[in-house]
Nucleic acid binder design. Structure first.
Lengths: 120, 120
DNA sequence: TGAATATATGAATATATGTTCATGTGTTTA
DNA sequence: TAAACACATGAACATATATTCATATATTCA
């Protein structure tokens, strides 16, 4: 058994470090869920919707007007946000009013704002 | 009420609401920057990297081992994270050690974790 | 009831994005 | 100095995603 001491990094020397970090990782499913959550914030149209709804509840066509986009595009994005549990829909007559579902949504948005404003 | 109320939403009735919300929106560039920031968290590979680096500084090949992925894939993603200002690189000999650049990165990550753990 | 309105959605298309493969750059070591 | 190593990167490919267009569903009102 030639157990030579290799001086390089990618063979065995750091295995204890690697194993320790692996032990500290959340389940893969959690990483996946986190990525899916942040993906919802990772599009400027959805970011605009979230920003608008952080001001007040709004119906679909008003959101479309605020963002100067087609109703259909907004509706598609609202469906994603709703499926992800970030916004909630309230039907009233012909209109559907959307609002942020959860304080966390605003918190994450605000935290992001804080981050980018520190870069200036 | 003597006002003749138009019953529809998408013509003119809500224009004051719309204009008020528009006035409360940040510049488009800010929305774009926010989306770009969150996009970095919106991929499970990058999420894994951020999670690993939140435990400790690590070299590229060790990150690759932790996530059980090819070095090249990790390197590509690290470049995106570095460009976005989320991680920092420290060169030491042949290796490059990466760490989170900023406390905000961990805060955003932790906030996301908190959100998804409340959904259970 | 039928027309007008508000929203949702499927299909198509264009674009963006992540991974792999091959290879380049820079550093250490034999 | 040449080989081994760690990392970076360009190109190619496959997949994911956002928007548009056409149309469906649902509600209100004449």
């Amino acid at each position: 058994m030639s157990k030579e001491q290799k001086s390089y990094c990618c063979d065995e020397v750091h295995d204890d470090v690697v194993n320790e970090v692996i032990a500290g990782m959340p389940p893969l499913e959690t990483l996946y869920d986190l990525a899916e959550l942040f993906k919802m914030f990772g599009d400027s149209t959805r970011m605009g919707i979230i920003c608008a709804l952080s001001q007040r509840e709004m119906c679909v066509c008003d959101i479309a007007k605020v963002l100067n986009m087609e109703q259909s595009a907004i509706s598609h994005q609202l469906r994603l946000l709703r499926t992800a549990g970030l916004v909630r829909a309230r039907k009233s007559g012909k209109s559907v009013f959307y609002s942020l579902d959860d304080d966390h949504v605003y918190s994450i948005y605000a935290q992001g704002l804080e981050h980018i404003s520190e870069l200036r």
